[in-house]
Design a protein around this nucleic acid. Structure first.
Lengths: 204, 204
DNA sequence: TTCTAAAATTGAGTCAATTCGATTTTTGTG
DNA sequence: CACAAAAATCGAATTGACTCAATTTTAGAA
């Protein structure tokens, strides 16, 4: 059987992630020393580097958990969207934004975003790009759904529109996490205002 | 007179920037060791840290030069825009993108972007945010100009539209610098396609 | 059970950014 | 021309992420 080794591996993965998540929150990303994470997880420094290529990848694993939850939550909206283009977009985007600070602090988001542009070819960099793509895809799916229902004109370029909406939202979110004092309601209002232009253009 | 000290200061600033720019290009940002920059600029490590808070700020100074050139070039387009909404946007955005790799390599851009999100309150982080704001402002100015000329409907929310266009372009540019093999013509075509939705919505 | 190869763990050592207190240079005053 | 205060320079020491060769643990064959 492939029991012991696999079980220990999964267990150590979990312990490292839990230790890192706790320390990142408490001390911030830079403040959480690898040595401290190793101690808390009861493994050696070397073992951490056996599981993750670098410190960023540890954060990356945590980010992936968060974004996958968000994607899951978004499915419901795509399946049964509000009967109004503006509300449909606002609802989906609202889910993304409201969930975003569940496990991750703004500081953790900043680090994660920074690493993903700094090292786009690292495991985390590629995973992050994939997550962005999935979010774009989900927005595109919502638009396609709205086109089916007849709320959005058939001749609209859904792919381009999905990218436009995601890119704008994402950049607004980046600016949001860069300002510690920025608040979610204002962020959502600003995005709604921007999307209003699009909504006017694409409605039947 | 306040001659010597001020002159030496300006000279050292210049030498550090020139040394750094050369080494960043040759060896990449990570590959350019502070020790090497100091040697090439003929100052000590300590002096570099007297002039710049950290390695990122040196890169920041170079990025600022580049972006300010771009902003300058953009003024001409805003003053006398092509007589067509789509072309006007494409021309301005074209200037931004075509200039972007003049002094900075993709790798330098990636690092600069990463640092600006990682340390939004550092001198460079704040400067970078300011540069983004200036670019957004310039796009907004172009739209205002097009409204004056009568090419864009008066009832369009120019501020929101400017942000939408900038945010989308900026995110596309981020993805562009993340992929070493990505090419400028494709980037511009993709942005044009996205903006087409907007152009259709805002034209008179 | 015993043994060997493969896999995993370990932590002391390396490397490079950044700090900081000692030293040197510049300035302006008497 | 001194001289003292202020400003700037300097580089050795610190710090923390990451590496890697030695050691330990596990798997599974005999």
């Amino acid at each position: 059987m492939s029991g012991l080794r696999a079980r220990q591996k999964a267990d150590r993965h979990r312990r490292i992630i839990e230790a890192a998540a706790a320390l990142f929150r408490e001390a911030g990303y830079e403040g959480a020393k690898i040595e401290a994470i190793a101690a808390q997880a009861e493994v050696s420094i070397g073992t951490i580097y056996n599981y993750y290529q670098n410190k960023g990848d540890i954060l990356g694993a945590i980010v992936s958990l968060e974004v996958n939850e968000v994607l899951n939550a978004g499915r419901g909206v795509v399946a049964r969207p509000p009967a109004n283009v503006g509300d449909a977009l606002d609802t989906l985007i609202g889910i993304y934004i409201e969930h975003s600070l569940h496990y991750l602090s703004k500081e953790m988001w900043r680090q994660a975003m920074a690493i993903s542009t700094q090292l786009p070819d690292s495991p985390f960099g590629q995973a992050y790009t994939g997550l962005d793509r999935s979010l774009t895809e989900q927005i595109r799916a919502l638009i396609a759904r709205l086109q089916e229902i007849g709320l959005v004109r058939q001749d609209i370029d859904g792919a381009a529109l999905g990218e436009l909406i995601f890119n704008n939202m994402n950049m607004m979110f980046i600016e949001f996490v860069k300002r510690e004092e920025a608040r979610i309601p204002e962020l959502r209002a600003a995005i709604r205002r921007q999307n209003r232009i699009l909504v006017a253009a694409i409605g039947v």
